[in-house]
Every structure is written in C-alpha cells, then in structure tokens.
Design a protein around this nucleic acid. Structure first.
Lengths: 185, 185
DNA sequence: AGGCACTACTCAACAAGTTGACTATCCGAG
DNA sequence: CTCGGATAGTCAACTTGTTGAGTAGTGCCT
C-alpha cells in the first residue's frame, strides 16, 4: 500500500497512462520509488476501484486505446493524509554493493566491469536530471525559482536524485581506483 | 534469491546467528540490503538446506540456544559466481521522498517533522559508520590501510553508506531551509 | 516481587513484487 | 516486404517481503 502513494504523487503532475508512468514515472518519482509495469497497472486498477483516481479511455487513431488516470478528490485527500503519517525508513537494495562487499573473494574483473557499467548509467541519469532541472529553472536562479514556483516538491526530490547519482559516480570511480592500486601489488 | 547473496557476503565476516544478522547485519551489509528478521531466519534455513551454509547449534548457559551459521565451500563458490553476474540496477524506495514530492499539497508541518527526524537518524548512522571506519583504519591513513588490508570490500561499501547518509543530511537540511523561506512568504 | 527489556528464535497468514508470455497496431529501416 | 521497436496494454504463476503473535529463560530496575 505504498506504491499507491508514489503513484498519487506522480499524478500530481497531471493525467497519465500506465504506460507513461511505466517508463520513467515522470522521470523524477522513478528515482525514489522503483516499480515494474505490471505493478503499476495492477495498482492503478485497484486505485480506480477504490475511487482514488479517475480513469478515462482515450481512443487513438493509429495506436491502441489508452486509459488516462488522474487524481480524484479522494485521492488528493488520501495523499494529504499520507504526508501527515511518519514515513518508514527508506529501503535500499543494491546488488552492486553486495558484489563489492564480496569483491575480495569474488570475480574482481567482473566487479570492475559492473562498477564501470554503473558509472555510465549514473552519468546518463545525471545528464537527464540536469536537463530536467534546466527545464524547470528556465533561466532563473534557484532562489528565484523556489520563491516563484507553485510547487517545490518535485524540484527538491530531483535534487536528491541528482546528488545520489553524483555520489554513485564518485564512489564507483574511487572504488575502481582502489582496486587498480591493489591489482598493481 | 538475492537476499541470499547479501547473507553470504555478510557471513564472510565470520560465523553469525540469525539474531546477530538481524540486528545490524554486521552494521555494513544492512546499509545496502534491508531485510526483516523473519526473512533472515527463513532464508538461512533454506541456505542450510541447500548446503550453502553450515549451521551449528551452540548451547549457552543462562541464554537460549543459538544456531551459528558459516559459509560453506559451496556457499563461497556460489558467492563467487554471483559476483561474476551483472548486477541488476539497485532499488530505492523511500516514503520520505514521496512525501516531499507531494509537500505542496500535503501536510507541510508533518513533512518538516519527518525531515528533521530523518536528519537525526542520518546523524546517528554517520556517527556509527565513522566509529566503524576508525576501528578499521586503526590509526593508519586510508591509503596504507587499503594497501595492507586483506579485504577492501567492506571498507568500500562502508564509504558508500557514509556518503549516502551525509548526502541525506545535507539534503534534509537544504529542504527544510527551502520550506522555511516559503513559509515566510 | 513485578514488570520490562534482551536474547534467540518459530509459525502462520497475508501483501507486495517479479517474470514471462501473449495480443495488437503502426512506423521506419533495410 | 519483412523485421524490429514503440505504443499500450492483459493474464497467470511464482517468489519475496511484511506483520503479528507466541515461546521461554535471564538480568536489571524499582
């Protein structure tokens, strides 16, 4: 019952189809709440059944029909109630970290490759987040934007995603350097 | 089948009971692989059934018996095989971020409290990680330690946990400041 | 002397998340 | 003119993860 809240938060940006949400979750929500497409479709159905979202079918030419979901008044209230609740501690699960933890008895070259891979992904994500940020700021300084904007939430979470990926990058780089030095033993 | 790998990595530190692992997972593994006690007990049983760990019962005076688990040769091989596999992208799920995303239509004072709470937790974690780090380094410089130590994995993952919590702290602080400035609108 | 916290688990029920296969149409590349 | 990829999903089976309660002895504080 928590994916639900992430979806409601995502729908604050406006109407979206399951498919829209599935690829990117609006780019920003995806960063702190991972979910597979199946989960989204299932949860959106349930939320519609519970009256938290309105679904409307849009017939398209040259394309399959889609269902666009939007937050209902009940959904908005539920989201408000959720923000009043103490959040549970966040969960992280990262196989790469497990592999690094075990690198000394594991397949070091493979772990290095995984680190390099992760660096590349982090760079891509950073670039995406920076573009999104530039789009939001639209030439203004951060302080001006934060004073004027009607919503600051999306910007703040975007910044967290950005800093997370930057730290990822730094850490992967550092770890590779450490492994290099040991390889040269 | 992935908690399994986290457990094997944790058992590289040596024999441990389910209870030991449940509280802290050896302090470090817990940071990148969250799990409830029940999960651990269940998974350890399965791993013992699959021959990945050895279990030995230790009778204690003044205390219930416990089962100490240690990695078997098969477990070690399985862990090696796991490190050779490309890791899947890490998962994050953080309700606090969802709340911040929705702060503009949510209960702002409650979200602030949640941010302050998270800051306090981050500080506690940082302090714990720093103590662990000092214990590992034992007076040496990082470079010397990394050259001498027989394992670098645990140190590297510790550093990731540390940087994660530091960023958490910074971000919560910044977010609170932003919300303050808007409150004074 | 009573109550709570700690150690060290076990069991059962339920909720959430993952995987893989399947449908159907359209567009552009080769 | 066929193939792959994008759009926009559905269905079923399975694996993980979560919650809550129960057990049982010891030590500590009041």
């Amino acid at each position: 019952m928590a994916l639900r809240h992430a979806l409601m938060a995502a729908l604050l940006e406006g109407e979206a189809s399951g498919y829209d949400l599935a690829k990117g979750f609006d780019a920003s929500v995806a960063n702190f709440w991972a979910a597979t497409p199946q989960q989204l479709y299932r949860e959106l159905d349930r939320m519609a059944a519970d009256g938290l979202v309105h679904a409307r079918v849009v017939h398209q030419q040259h394309r399959p029909d889609k269902r666009l979901f939007s937050l209902s008044e009940a959904g908005r209230r539920a989201l408000h109630a959720f923000t009043a609740q103490p959040p549970r501690p966040g969960v992280i699960r990262d196989e790469l970290l497990v592999q690094v933890q075990a690198v000394d008895v594991g397949d070091e070259p493979a772990v290095r490759r995984a680190l390099a891979e992760r660096m590349a992904r982090a760079e891509t994500k950073i670039a995406g987040y920076e573009r999104l940020r530039a789009r939001l700021l639209d030439g203004r300084f951060e302080d001006d934007y934060l004073a004027e904007a009607e919503r600051v939430g999306p910007y703040l979470t975007l910044m967290r995603g950005l800093s997370f990926e930057r730290e990822n990058l730094r850490w992967c780089e550092h770890s590779l350097k450490v492994l290099d030095r040991r390889a040269a033993r």
